[in-house]
Design a protein around this nucleic acid. Structure first.
Length: 910
RNA sequence: GCCGGGAUGGCGGAAUCGGUAGACGCAGCGGACUCAAAAUCCGCCGCCGCAAGGUGUGGGGGUUCGAGUCCCCCUCCCGGCACCA
């Protein structure tokens, strides 16, 4: 054994040992409870960053902990390999996305392996492999057959200069990131998944997930957003150029506030609405306004924060209940693709409509009143918006026959009247929209459709799957290179055999990540996963995932899409045919039983605007920070030119913002165990973490201290471990030794509690405390007059016991050093095979307890009493204390004494 | 803007059910060892104060014998907002 902590040597040797013995190969074993632990797979961006280290260490700690507790564990890993950054890299470096991606995977895999994760690498997958995405295509076709997938128009960001569709990320202040051109909203056809058809299930099943954080379930429920409202029509006789009634003379709208219908003073329609198009034909100003509305991004955050603008069409429609003529406006905040593309406006009771009406001097008509203090009706003034104007707790006013009705009663009555006229009905509305999956990009899974002039859109037959993506294209920013690939494009129509063209859109990468967890669990053959089916009986053994771990940023989209996809897999019969368990009604059809949402690892973001209006990001190590007088960070200068850069605040580590911190230097300088310990010790897993390497030294120092302690006492400890189990005779221990042993086991108890609640930072603290205790133990540890019958150091008995606990509870976090010491000190060959330690109840018993004394809730002293002392005696004892008597001198009397058992006494005087 | 979360010493954080605020570390300061440095070890360390004591968990209010913890209002920060993944 070496005196210095040889981390490189032991980490290499330990990892070698695991690889040779295939220690982490997951083999289904029904004799044990199974534990499928899954961390969200990474996008292969190039290098790992600290967020990955955090995520995967959390997963590894849980995997190893459960393995030692006797579970049959599976921890796989793979690559979310399709996506935009590969295309961006291609534009920049002229490297094909496939090569870039596979190179990154190779490098990042090495990094992951050097961290010593207990991963079954035989189940590795990458979503860009045809063997994987074949099943995306296969299920897409099943969804098409069942009507779950369908085609309609979508709105995209269009760069008029590059003639290409932009991702939201590529739109900066309404302009294209490369060209600086004003982005336009453009309508193009695309495929959708009918996730709204599953909205009720997705909402209901949240209740079947007790192992999910409440906040994630709340976010999902709000996102799904079930509301009951009324869909109704304003009537009109407006005709298009050919004399046809537009939309059969009905302007449909949806509202959750039908009770305010008598307060409608105008309607607003989207720029693309037929009524807007018609009015623009004879109104150049309106036509120009509509063109302006079509500029800007399609992001909801932009829509919500932009200035609300509108213009009168000059058209009017008829209010279905009052018969009044209501003007129709075009509003830049109304989107054609959401709802009906038109809304009723009630400025008196909707904040957005109120602001709009004030701006354009439209009438504001109060139709709901509310009573305030003393039952007096609150006054309505149009000067300024008041919070209560939008309240649903009032009653109708200025609404004719509906006056006095509550929200619910008014909605019911109004819906009934609209129904009677054939102009409307109650309708359940979801905030959730159908999932648009078409992407006009190259580096993704091809959508398996063939376009034939005579047969239309024809699905690719199953036996022609997968539709393989050519891997040698190099995107240049001017659209999808597949459109220029004749060998990909040209094919025969599967129906009529005539020459036809392949669909060149690829799937949203959220499709890839919606089922990878199931593929990992599928049985493997020598060449990889079962090539004949999407999932099979082995999936039945491992699913659902027992613990899913990933960033909180995935709380809504990825998790919702995965839940949806898993339900669809069930509904197309995949799970019930392959896996009888899922055919049962009592099985919760949810893919992730327990969810741990890891907090983001943040770092500084620095950027500069480019001359074309784009953004260039700079890594934190490329800049020098500038602080104001108070020490607050205000900006930075670029080291290369000394000129200022913008400080954009703290944000998630990402390749695109260039603020990721590569763990490589840390691993090389301190070792994997230090990196892992440091990340776990820094904060509890769910908490956001601002990156700082302050404290790495402390983590490393602890491991060095552990190693030296073991080295210095190895002979004494081996003398004990070589004898097999030796009983600790607690009654023979000296008081100080007994106290040390008690502290030891209290820390073990706390560590077990903390592991169960996933608070790994305090598990690390417990390990440090245990080492501190062991180092503090001094002779004598036996009561005077007692001796051990065997020839060993009595002190070493406690060391051996304490160290065996410390090594085991530390091993999930630091698996290398603990394995090395476990074997070296003679505890056993493999720490993973050791039993998980449990505290010794006898060691925890405490005869005397310190009680805190408070006077009026303030700490004034303490007394030490026998654990069994009666409450009355405790009260009497407390009153005797000088720290209490002091407060009774001026004739004040004791009003109350509160005794909290084993904790404190509060004497209330006055 | 909307939805969700967060704020505790110079820093990361602890405090499990409303009961001793600051565990365990980092940084800092003092000391030992050393020719010296590193490493290591020992001690101190919220703020004000010589002390007694006072004060203190983003800010303001409330409930309670007692509030970091519960309630109301506000500020700032982070995540998401459907084509970043």
């Amino acid at each position: 054994m070496q005196p210095q902590y040889p981390f490189q040597e032991i980490e290499h040797a330990t990892q070698q040992g695991w690889a040779t013995k295939q220690t982490f190969r997951a083999v289904a074993d029904s004799s044990k409870p199974k534990y499928y632990c899954l961390s969200m797979f990474p996008y292969p961006s190039g290098k790992l960053h600290m967020g990955h280290v955090r995520n995967y260490t959390i997963g590894d700690v849980l995997t190893r902990y459960h393995r030692m507790k006797g579970y049959n564990v599976l921890q796989p890993m793979g690559w979310d390999a399709f996506g935009l950054p590969a295309e961006n890299a291609a534009i920049q470096n002229k490297v094909p996305p496939a090569k870039w991606t596979y190179d990154n995977i190779a490098y990042m895999k090495k990094q992951l392996q050097s961290l010593g994760f207990a991963i079954d690498w035989s189940r590795e997958l990458a979503t860009c492999q045809p063997e994987y995405y074949k099943w995306n295509q296969w299920l897409f076709l099943r969804m098409l057959e069942k009507g779950i997938a369908y085609k309609k128009t979508q709105v995209v960001n269009w760069d008029p200069v590059d003639q290409t569709v932009l991702a939201n990320e590529q739109v900066i202040d309404g302009r294209g990131w490369r060209t600086g051109a004003l982005v336009e909203k453009r309508e193009i056809p695309g495929y959708y998944f009918n996730i709204t058809g599953y909205a009720q299930q997705l909402l209901d099943d949240l209740d079947k997930l007790p192992g999910w954080p409440e906040r994630v379930k709340t976010m999902q429920a709000n996102w799904i957003g079930k509301s009951t409202g009324v869909r109704f029509a304003f009537t009109h006789a407006i005709q298009d150029a050919s004399g046809q009634l537009i939309d059969d003379g009905k302007l449909w709208v949806f509202t959750t506030r039908a009770d305010t219908i008598m307060g409608v003073t105008f309607c607003a329609v989207a720029a693309e609405h037929p009524l807007a198009t018609l009015a623009a034909g004879s109104n150049p100003a309106l036509s120009a306004f509509i063109d302006k509305c079509k500029q800007g991004s399609v992001m909801e955050a932009d829509m919500a924060t932009m200035e609300k603008e509108g213009m009168d069409t000059g058209l009017t429609v008829t209010h279905p209940l009052t018969g009044e003529q209501v003007p129709v406006w075009v509003g830049n905040y109304v989107l054609m693709t959401y709802g009906e593309g038109a809304v009723m406006a009630v400025p008196a009771h909707d904040e957005r409509d109120f602001a709009f009406a004030k701006k354009y001097h439209l009438p504001i008509k109060q139709s709901v009143a509310e009573k305030g203090e003393g039952g007096i009706e609150k006054g309505y003034a149009i000067e300024a918006w008041q919070e209560w104007y939008a309240s649903k707790s009032g009653y109708c006013c200025n609404s004719g026959k509906y006056d006095g009705l509550s929200y619910e009663a008014a909605v019911d009555a109004i819906a009934a009247d609209l129904h009677a006229k054939g102009l409307g009905d109650k309708q359940i509305n979801w905030r959730l929209r159908d999932w648009g999956v078409s992407r006009q990009r190259y580096w993704g899974c091809p959508i398996p459709i063939i376009h034939c002039d005579s047969c239309g859109d024809v699905p690719v037959p199953d036996d022609q799957l997968p539709v393989k993506l050519p891997e040698d294209c190099v995107p240049d920013g001017s659209g999808n290179p597949l459109n220029k690939r004749e060998d990909f494009l040209n094919c025969a129509c599967p129906k009529c055999g005539a020459p036809a063209k392949r669909e060149t859109d690829t799937m949203d990468t959220f499709v890839d990540s919606s089922w990878y967890y199931a593929r990992y669990a599928t049985s493997t053959v020598a060449s990889g996963f079962n090539p004949d089916v999407m999932v099979d009986a082995e999936t039945n053994h491992w699913m659902p995932v027992d613990q899913y771990i990933g960033g909180i940023e995935h709380a809504i989209l990825h998790l919702l899409y995965s839940r949806f996809w898993w339900k669809v897999m069930g509904d197309v019969g995949l799970l019930s045919s392959a896996t009888p368990r899922f055919a049962r009604d009592d099985v919760c059809r949810e893919p992730f039983a327990n969810l741990l949402t890891q907090g983001m690892v943040l770092n500084h973001i620095f950027s500069r605007r480019t001359d074309k209006g784009g953004i260039q990001y700079y890594a934190p190590e490329e800049v020098t920070l500038v602080h104001d007088a108070a020490g607050k960070l205000t900006g930075a200068t670029l080291n290369a030119d000394g000129l200022p850069v913008d400080f954009q605040g703290m944000g998630t580590m990402s390749k695109s913002k260039r603020n990721g911190v590569d763990p490589q230097a840390l691993i090389e300088q301190y070792g994997a165990d230090t990196a892992r310990f440091f990340m776990m010790f820094a904060a509890p897993p769910e908490q956001t973490l601002e990156w700082s390497d302050a404290g790495v030294d402390g983590a490393h120092r602890f491991l060095k201290r552990l190693w030296s302690f073991a080295y210095e006492n190895s002979e004494a400890i081996k003398a004990i471990t070589s004898r097999g189990p030796v009983l600790l005779e607690i009654n023979n221990l000296s008081d100080s030794a007994k106290a040390a042993l008690r502290e030891l086991h209290e820390n073990l108890k706390q560590a077990n509690f903390d592991l169960e609640r996933h608070q790994f930072n305090t598990v690390g603290a417990a390990c440090m405390k245990i080492l501190n205790i062991l180092q503090r133990i001094n002779e004598p540890v036996l009561k005077s007059g007692y001796a051990l019958s065997i020839d060993i150091s009595p002190r070493a008995l406690i060391w051996a016991n304490g160290l065996s606990i410390l090594l085991r509870i530390l091993s999930p976090i630091c698996p290398h050093i603990t394995q090395a010491l476990w074997a070296e000190l003679g505890y056993g060959d493999d720490i993973l095979a050791a039993d998980w330690p449990q505290p010794l109840e006898a060691a925890l018993v405490q005869d005397e307890i310190e009680l805190v004394i408070q006077v009026n809730g303030k700490l004034r002293g303490s007394v030490t009493v026998a654990r069994t002392l009666e409450k009355a005696a405790i009260e009497a004892l407390a009153l005797e204390q000088s720290c209490v008597q002091k407060f009774l001198e001026d004739g004040a009397s004791v009003r109350k004494i509160i005794v909290v058992p084993n904790k404190l006494i509060n004497v209330v005087v006055g």
